[in-house]
Amino acid sequence: MSDLFLGLISGTSADGIDAAIVRFDDRADGTLAAQLVFGATYPWDPALAERLVTLGQQTALLTLDDVGDLDVRIADAFADAANEAIRDAALGPADIAAIGSHGQTLRHRPNGRDHDGVAPFTLQLGDGARIAERTGVATVADFRRRDVAAGGHGAPLLPALHAALLRTPGEDRAVLNLGGIANLTLLPGDGGAVRGFDTGPANGLMDAWCLRHTGAAFDRGGALAAAGRVDAALLARLRAEPWFALPAPKSTGRDQFHLGWVESALRGDETVADVQATLLALSATTIADALGAMQPRTARLIGCGGGVHNPALMRALGEAMPGMVVESSALHGIDPDHMEAMGFAWLARQTLLGRPGNLPSVTGAAGPRVLGVIHPA
């Protein structure tokens, strides 16, 4: 089996499909080596991206035809990204042991919805069989549902990789993924159990607000937020959301934190920039609250994901957690833009080797589980 795996993921913001080709090696001392051979982000078709973002901001029901159509179109987009990545890396399909595809989350409700009797579920679209067919590479997909079936949240799934690559004895660390949703991995320096959970919005609300009011897909450099002032009353109303007080393990998505949720807290006299500044403060303060409650002696916060490139957000995180080192995973030799895609390459490897991909201490599942469905080449 080749030692190269290709990971694919598109986050909650649907701002591109991240592809990472990674070489993994199990060292003799039991640690893991991971080398990013190639990484790139490939654009969505604009019409499809707009459709995905719209679906994340509303609760309108789709027809079965809509779901089936999206499943195929998303798979084709992922397959195109995989094929381009393989070509751009000067490789061929035979060089890749497997593709690990996260897919695009349509709904994530691991707790169900008690008020209307919906059973716990998670749904990621992007047919793995079609990706395998169009790439000629074995594809592992649908990673989250097995963990949910075992009573877990199906998320986050990368803490095991974070622990393998970034844990160090004697220092309490945390890894913060700043995608559409923020999630934390807690790495205690005393060898205690790894924990991980979503904390709430990271970039998703800011991106959606910026797109609606400026036409830009994201707030480049945090400029819009920097032009505004935090509205303390609005921030308090947003922070009063009961989800933030739920204990870990917990996870969430765009179906909960969307612009309709923000607009329900507005009073009508806020400026666009002030709302953006307040949404940034919401991300920073809820992350700080969660980390302070769960691992108060954290010495180092290692950031990855698109939010690392927002200096206003990174500065706000540092101000919310004085005395803590807040830095990019780049300082540890891991490209922050490709950490998640690397994670799904690793999950594909775990599945092919028959190894668990989840951590029950993170997701709340009944035990370790081999994740995903394998679609042979």
Rank of each mutant, 00 (worst) to 15 (best):
R212G: 04
A217P: 03
R220Q: 15
A233Y: 08
C210I: 02
G222T: 12
G221K: 06
G215H: 11
A217M: 07
A227H: 10
D207T: 03
G215S: 03
F218S: 03
A227L: 06
F218Q: 09
G228W: 00
R212K: 13
W243T: 10
W209L: 00
E241R: 08
A233V: 15
L238C: 06
V230Q: 02
R239F: 08
L246S: 14
L235E: 08
D207H: 06
G228E: 01
W243K: 08
G222I: 10
H213G: 10
C210V: 02
D207P: 00
G215P: 12
A225S: 05
L238Y: 11
C210R: 04
A227M: 10
G215R: 12
A240E: 02
A236K: 12
P242Y: 07
F218P: 00
A208L: 04
A208C: 02
A225M: 08
G228K: 00
L224D: 12
V230R: 12
A216E: 14
A225P: 02
A226N: 14
R239G: 13
T214Q: 07
D231S: 10
A240Y: 11
L211R: 09
L246E: 15
A245T: 11
L246M: 11
G221H: 06
L235F: 04
F218L: 12
A232F: 08
P242K: 12
A245H: 03
A226L: 15
F244W: 12
A233G: 09
A236S: 15
L234Y: 03
G228D: 04
G222S: 07
W209H: 00
L238K: 00
A225T: 01
D231M: 02
L211C: 06
A216Y: 05
A236Q: 15
H213T: 13
L238W: 10
A232M: 13
L235K: 00
L235D: 14
C210F: 03
L235V: 06
L235I: 05
A217S: 10
L234W: 02
A208R: 01
L211H: 11
A216P: 07
A208M: 01
A208H: 01
F218E: 08
R239W: 09
A232P: 09
F218K: 03
F218T: 02
W209G: 00
R229N: 15
D207L: 01
R220W: 09
W209M: 00
F218Y: 15
A217K: 06
A223F: 05
L234T: 02
P242D: 03
A245Y: 09
A208G: 06
G221Q: 04
A217N: 07
W243N: 13
L235N: 06
G221A: 05
A232K: 09
R239E: 15
M206V: 15
G221V: 01
G228S: 05
C210G: 04
R212F: 05
V230K: 09
A240M: 07
D219L: 09
T214C: 05
D207E: 02
L234F: 01
F244H: 14
H213I: 03
A240D: 03
A226Y: 10
V230W: 10
L238P: 08
A225L: 13
D219W: 14
R237A: 11
A240N: 09
G228N: 00
